[in-house]
Design a binder for these strands. Structure first.
Lengths: 123, 123
DNA sequence: CTCCATACTTTCGAAAAGGTGAGTACCGCA
DNA sequence: TGCGGTACTCACCTTTTCGAAAGTATGGAG
């Protein structure tokens, strides 16, 4: 889905909204930039435990194409690139806030159920 | 991600919320059940143009496991199965409403930009 | 002249997701 | 006796996604 197959015909708004967030790390990138405002490539990499450089770069490029974030290049050595949310990215994050709350409640439910199971006597 | 690898450790709420919606047709299933209240398997299949029976069944199972929808079996011939949203599914749909609005606005933007490009002289 | 740091890109391969088409079970209908 | 309609499941294959590791470019420090 390298920015060519995307922007497909959408069936509803949720469909269109999901399109720009699907990707293993995209919602976390959004979250990270929301929290820090501006982050460098390496900072994002260290902030997303487990992400590969390839996926991070690829996701960042797609999100830039989707108008979610800005990429500011400082022509220094060693190179420096800073990422930050555009107004569209900010509004997307706000639109995801309700989903975030729902997810937190889900985590709580799972923890509550889990404790009933996992705390069963180990021996 | 067949219901075993899921429920992984989540980094934030959005992460946890996204988990239950990732899947090519899940958000559309949610949308369909939200609009119709109750739908049979075949109705869902016809309502989601392009979905395969395998994926529809698989997604419905996962969403049932995630507590998003109810499955009601009528032991008739030919068989009848009705799907509907649980309270959790309903609240998830509400949580996705903001994303849906965002997506609609994005579609409008893309249409506006697209018309400027695609209407360029064909010959 | 080599190493370091940064921000990537590229290549290869594995894993996951998704699609295709067939098969199953059941009963009423012709 | 065979067909239709429903709601699946299963085996197999293709497509997409993701990861690991190496390579690229640059200039300053040593």
């Amino acid at each position: 889905m390298a920015a060519g197959a995307r922007r497909g015909p959408y069936i509803c708004g949720i469909d269109a909204g999901m399109d720009v967030v699907t990707g293993k790390w995209k919602s976390l990138i959004l979250w990270e930039l929301h929290n820090y405002g501006t982050r460098r490539f390496g900072e994002l990499r260290r902030g997303l435990p487990g992400v590969s450089e390839k996926m991070l770069a690829q996701h960042l490029r797609e999100m830039e194409e989707d108008g979610l974030l800005d990429r500011k290049i400082y022509r220094e050595v060693p190179p420096r690139v800073e990422y930050s949310l555009t107004p569209h990215g900010i509004s997307l994050n706000e639109a995801l806030r309700a989903l975030g709350s729902w997810g937190q409640q889900r985590v709580k439910r799972l923890a509550a159920e889990g404790s009933l199971i996992e705390v069963s006597p180990p021996a």
